[in-house]
């Protein structure tokens, strides 16, 4: 095993463990912290895949903005483990079974499929900002502009929904 593989396995264990922590912890704030750690593990995977831009944007957007919003809302409502609603164990079991079944079915499908792709360890520069910028503003400029309209409408929507006195 070389060092990249060791890092891969550490990050994988961290990602899956923290993702389980998100789902299983009773306190919503702990869930948020676990999700932030999951995002860090995924950012580490991006770095291993030579996607530096994605790694840092993942941290800025998810860990730096989205999760702060989640934490903000949870603190605003002052949720903690005591107020946390729990489903009956039967429903929880059904959730685990259906999730696990999907996992098994797709794993079976993947191992039947003859995938021969190998991710080599040599560094490429497709993840560099210069390359990504060229692709984004030449090939995908229309989707980019449309997503900006989406952002604007989401912003206006959030403001309209969040307004205090509607009636």
């Amino acid at each position: 095993m070389d060092i990249l593989q060791i890092i891969f396995w550490i990050l994988t264990v961290m990602a899956i463990g923290c993702a389980l922590g998100v789902v299983l912890s009773r306190n919503p704030v702990n869930s948020v912290i676990f999700l932030i750690l999951t995002f860090f593990a995924i950012s580490g995977h991006y770095l291993l895949l030579n996607a530096q831009f994605l790694a840092i944007v993942n941290i800025i957007v998810y860990a730096g903005a989205i999760m702060v919003l989640f934490l903000f809302v949870i603190m605003l409502m002052n949720l903690n483990a005591d107020t946390e609603p729990q489903k009956s164990w039967l429903v929880q079991l059904a959730g685990v079974v259906s999730g696990g079944t999907l996992f098994l079915v797709i794993i079976a499908a993947i191992s039947k499929a003859n995938l021969l792709g190998v991710i080599n360890t040599e560094t490429t520069n497709i993840g560099l900002i210069k390359v990504l910028g060229q692709v984004l503003f030449k090939q995908y400029v229309l989707p980019f502009e449309i997503s900006s309209v989406l952002f604007l409408s989401a912003m206006i929507g959030a403001i309209v929904i969040g307004k205090k006195d509607m009636e």
Binding site: F53, I56, I60, A63, V68
Partner: peptide, 16 residues
């Protein structure tokens, strides 16, 4: 090569 974005990312984590 993403130095400024790194600074920005760390700054956005500072609030935690």
């Amino acid at each position: 090569n993403i130095g400024i974005l790194f600074v920005f990312g760390v700054v956005s984590l500072g609030v935690y």
